[in-house]
Nucleic acid binder design. Structure first.
Lengths: 102, 102
DNA sequence: ATTACATGCAGTAAAATTACTACATATAGA
DNA sequence: TCTATATGTAGTAATTTTACTGCATGTAAT
């Protein structure tokens, strides 16, 4: 895994707003920007501007965690977490001390 | 795991310089600030000021990934990655799509 | 065609990050 | 005690991040 890719993934995860968005997308497929905004208010009580949510989605997308498809004037965002992503995010596990096998 | 703790861990990991420091600490126990600086130059070819490396170590320490002990005028930094840390860093794995069991 | 809707893009301001330099403090050794 | 060593702290500058507002573009519906 490239250093830049690790940067993108960890930076995407290093913000609680983005983690909430990811959590929402995990429970709802193919969400539009407006649906994510609405959920942010309804579920998390956080009122963010549409443009701000769009920026967060862009960061998550650049990390490769989201797949998007256009349907008419609506852009659908779907979470697509692969083995590669979880392996990267688990980078730290490489450095865990080995437990003594009892 | 608290949101703030996830922030600290992911932010600590979201910088390639800090990841290199963590990697170095994984191979060398109880490193002083100067030893980390020297390794940064020798192993990675990156010449950073002592104060900059100190800041990075502080970020890693605040994330709880390092244990420090003073010996005279030397501060020894030791990597201490626990189950809690790897579980937090693997946060993303909770959202991976289930593979169809063949 | 006109209006409403969904999103993109540009610009801005406050805050955080990342590097630096300079000075201060505390310990070890001559 | 005096000096060198190891680190801490403060302040600064450039860059990035995170929020915002306003305007533009493209699609759907009346």
């Amino acid at each position: 895994m490239q250093d830049e890719q690790l940067d993108l993934i960890f930076k995407a995860l290093a913000d609680s707003t983005r983690r909430r968005i990811i959590d929402h997308l995990s429970r709802h497929e193919a969400q539009s920007l407006f649906e994510v905004c609405a959920a942010s208010v309804a579920e998390d009580g956080v009122a963010l501007s549409r443009q701000t949510v769009s920026q967060h989605l862009s960061v998550i997308e650049k990390a490769g965690l989201i797949e998007t498809t256009w349907k008419g004037r609506t852009k659908a965002h779907s979470l697509r977490i692969t083995e590669d992503h979880t392996a990267a995010a688990s980078w730290l596990a490489n450095y865990k001390e080995k437990e003594p096998t009892i």
